[in-house]
């Protein structure tokens, strides 16, 4: 993977957070968060539990509404009440910690549901697409399996394929390997690495430090609802702040 800066000048970033504030009740979760995700680049968000990293990610796809600030994603002004939510979610794919394949549908049915229902794609074409995205995640042979017949890693790869089938411009990954044991984690991370190599714009919240370091063009370290440190993956080797040093030092 090229460590070269990926943002072409004069091009808007795929995702921009500007001074984003968000509270749950009296608990301030995001306290003025700003960062850009250039097109075709990979940003990993790291930090302790409760640092606001997952909330920041969920705000990008408007699973949480922000109290103040601005979020722009592929031209969609996410913070505005007039946002076309459907259009936003056509451009953004999200994969969760708990896989969330639909248990009553086969892997293929999981994948073709949204393209046929939302994009009105003909079934035959959608099936072809399903085969393609499953090949991308190395799961072709599980086309007709139900989620419960798959391992956690396979389910998570299926969920990634399902998201890919919508051909999003940006992919969000919310601690997608946290529920997996180390062996299965590897196969999921490999899929994500391949996506990065293919030039997909991605934002990942992760606890896998080695992975975050290896894949990231940009690392965002969050601490107490703020972006505490931000920079290329190298900041993990030479932290500028004590908090990041401590976070990296304590492992994970």
């Amino acid at each position: 993977m090229s460590p070269a800066p990926t943002s072409a000048t004069g091009q808007d970033p795929a995702v921009r957070l500007s001074d984003v504030h968000k509270s749950f009740g009296t608990n301030k979760v995001l306290d003025g968060v700003s960062f850009d995700v250039p097109r075709g680049s990979v940003t990993t968000i790291i930090g302790r539990s409760g640092s606001g990293k997952s909330t920041a990610l969920r705000c990008i796809d408007r699973f949480e509404r922000i109290d103040r600030g601005e979020i722009t994603v592929c031209g969609h002004r996410v913070h505005e009440p007039s946002l076309d939510l459907r259009a936003l979610r056509l451009d953004v794919g999200i994969v969760f910690q708990s896989y969330n394949l639909f248990p009553h549908l086969t892997v293929e049915e999981n994948i073709i549901l949204a393209p046929t229902a939302v994009k009105k794609m003909p079934k035959a074409e959608a099936r072809e697409l399903a085969r393609r995205v499953l090949a991308q995640v190395g799961l072709e042979e599980k086309l007709h399996a139900y989620p419960e017949q798959l391992s956690g890693g396979q389910q998570q790869r299926g969920a990634i394929a399902r998201s890919l089938a919508m051909q999003p411009k940006v992919m969000l990954f919310d601690e997608v390997t946290s529920a997996l044991d180390p062996e299965l984690t590897g196969e999921v991370l490999k899929v994500i690495e391949q996506l990065a190599a293919d030039g997909m714009t991605m934002v990942l919240v992760t606890h896998e430090m080695a992975f975050a370091r290896g894949i990231a063009d940009q690392v965002v370290f969050m601490h107490r609802g703020k972006v505490h440190e931000i920079g290329p993956a190298a900041i993990l080797s030479s932290p500028a702040t004590q908090e990041l040093a401590q976070f990296v030092g304590t492992g994970l």
Partner: peptide, 14 residues
């Protein structure tokens, strides 16, 4: 489960 709703939402289903 709530995440099933969210997964469907994330796929732009109405």
């Amino acid at each position: 489960p709530r995440p099933q709703w969210e997964a469907a939402e994330g796929l732009a289903l109405s």
